[in-house]
Design a protein around this nucleic acid. Structure first.
Length: 462
RNA sequence: GGCGGCGUGGCCGAGUGGUUAGGCAGGGGCCUGCAAAGCCCUCCACCCCGGUUCGAAUCCGGGCGCCGCCUCCA
């Protein structure tokens, strides 16, 4: 079984499954009030990769990722633009799924919306009020974190130190600055849901704890998200679960952030770049390759140069697919290793990739192995060892399929005009009329084709 | 102030007490009519100072520099 870093125990340890052969994982999804940025792209790619790989190995993975469709940011945007909150959320949720499709992130098995679980959240909060773990103020209901024995365990901070570091707040109704809102009572013109403790809307932290437990049940296996969610979001989710007597996530995994320049890309720094922008301006697969080539817990740098670097890498991978006419795998569907026939060389590759993946999802090592196999496949083919070459090459395609990276082989249609130019060039070459052959090649290149000579003659692609 | 992380070759980015990471870029060669693609070879490295060790980029101590969380944030 895979070994993953667990933020709760602060060590790499085996992912223990509640039910043999089945993995239950929850990833905190987006609040849909703006276009997805590169940071969203990274976390979705990282956890999509884990999901895909576990499935690839034959595990039955239930993958849940929420949509937060009610929140201050959504309300503010709706107010500014004179629209309803539902309208804002719907627009950006659509943009979200479009972006996910573009970068090849598979749909989760469940995509709970916060607004569909308000009743359950109200029930949870009622319980806290009933047993004194929460208290109501004029504008909110707060969880009293002093009632949670090991509050701070996930973020590795003692309650005292958190208290010392807390910013001073104006709200004097809170018993402790660390207490967080479970419920925000409605202000005029704000959307609200009925509750015995005052109509209003749920706090962010309450949404995820309710939805993850509702869909995955007590003691589900794995809870994932970005490092910056560790505190307060995940800590507060966990606090509620503990306070309510639930067995919560058994393993917590966090991914590193995206750096633009030398700084974290984030909302507060206002330097985030749209994911849509990236996928429209370059091969969307480049971002997945970029993400795979660094460890999920390390920060990654995204810049035109690092994207261009990844694009070059993709060209090499696609070159293998062309040479060996490999099938296009992955994309919206999940691959299973057992669905593919692997020869000895590919089996060996798979075993070695599995070993590094089980070591805290070491995708950079996996990618390195894949590139080595790629070179070996070409080299074997050059030596005339066709069977080994084909075995390795198909292994590369299958492994990358398991990691969610699809290779693009021969690029489809060649129009009649182009086909005529190609034929004319081959005839000129046959007659050793190099000047004419070169002229025709220039013409093809000018029309946007990449021209390569093969044993079979001129080959063009876009 | 509390907690945590990082500093690797031209660039990106792994890694581990002794053995090639990998990619991109550069140089040379093979192949090719010439290219392209591909293959082979190759240059460039572990922030600084001590220490432990037969041996440290890898462990320990100190220093310098950088980043993050502690507030909405993936």
């Amino acid at each position: 079984m895979i070994r993953l870093h667990d933020s709760l125990q602060n060590q790499v340890r085996e992912l223990a499954l509640r039910d043999a052969g089945r993995v239950s994982m929850y990833v905190c999804g987006p609040t849909v009030y703006d276009l997805p940025h590169l940071g969203h792209g990274r976390f979705t790619l990282v956890w999509d990769t884990l999901r895909r790989w576990l499935s690839f190995q034959g595990l039955d993975v239930t993958f849940v990722s929420n949509i937060t469709d009610i929140d201050d940011n959504i309300i503010n945007k709706a107010l500014r633009e004179g629209r309803t909150e539902a309208d804002v959320a719907a627009q950006y949720e659509e943009a979200w799924w479009d972006a996910m499709a573009a970068i090849g992130v598979a749909r989760p098995d469940h995509t709970p919306h916060a607004t569909a679980f308000v009743k359950e959240m109200v029930t949870l909060i009622e319980g806290f009020l009933a047993n004194g773990k929460a208290y109501s103020t004029s504008d909110s209901v707060y969880l009293d974190v002093s009632t949670v024995a090991d509050y701070g365990a996930l973020s590795g901070q003692a309650l005292d130190s958190l208290r010392a570091g807390a910013r001073i707040e104006a709200n004097e109704e809170k018993r402790s600055p660390l207490d967080f809102a479970l419920w925000k009572k409605a202000k005029p013109d704000e959307p609200s849901w009925p509750a015995p403790f005052g109509d209003g809307r749920p706090g962010w932290h309450t949404e995820c704890v309710v939805m993850s437990l509702a869909l995955l049940g007590e003691g589900f296996d794995l809870h994932c998200g970005g490092f910056d969610l560790r505190f307060p979001h995940h800590e507060n989710e966990r606090a509620q679960a503990v306070a309510a007597g639930h067995v919560f996530a058994q393993h917590w995994a966090h991914n590193g952030w995206v750096m633009v320049g030398d700084q974290k890309m984030s909302k507060s720094l206002n330097n985030f770049t749209s994911l849509t922008d990236l996928t429209e301006k370059s091969d969307p697969r480049s971002y997945r390759l970029l993400v795979l080539r660094s460890h999920y817990r390390s920060p990654i740098e995204v810049s035109p140069a690092t994207i261009a670097d990844a694009v070059r890498g993709l060209e090499r991978l696609d070159g293998l697919a062309r040479r060996f006419e490999l099938p296009v795998l992955s994309g919206s569907t999940l691959e299973r290793a057992s669905d593919h026939q692997l020869g000895p060389a590919a089996t060996d590759l798979y075993e070695r990739v599995s070993a590094v993946m089980e070591n805290d999802m070491d995708t950079p090592a996996a990618v390195a192995l894949v590139f080595e196999a790629l070179t070996n496949a070409h080299a074997a083919a050059d030596r005339g060892e066709d069977e080994t070459a084909r075995d390795l090459a198909s292994g590369v395609a299958v492994i990358l399929g398991g990691l969610g990276l699809a290779l693009h082989g021969a690029s489809g249609e060649v129009d009649a005009t182009t086909a005529a130019l190609v034929q004319a060039r081959d005839e000129a070459r046959a007659q050793k009329n190099w000047a004419e052959a070169d002229r025709l090649r220039d013409e093809l290149v000018a029309a946007g084709w990449t021209v390569e000579d093969s044993a079979a003659g001129t080959v063009v692609r876009r």
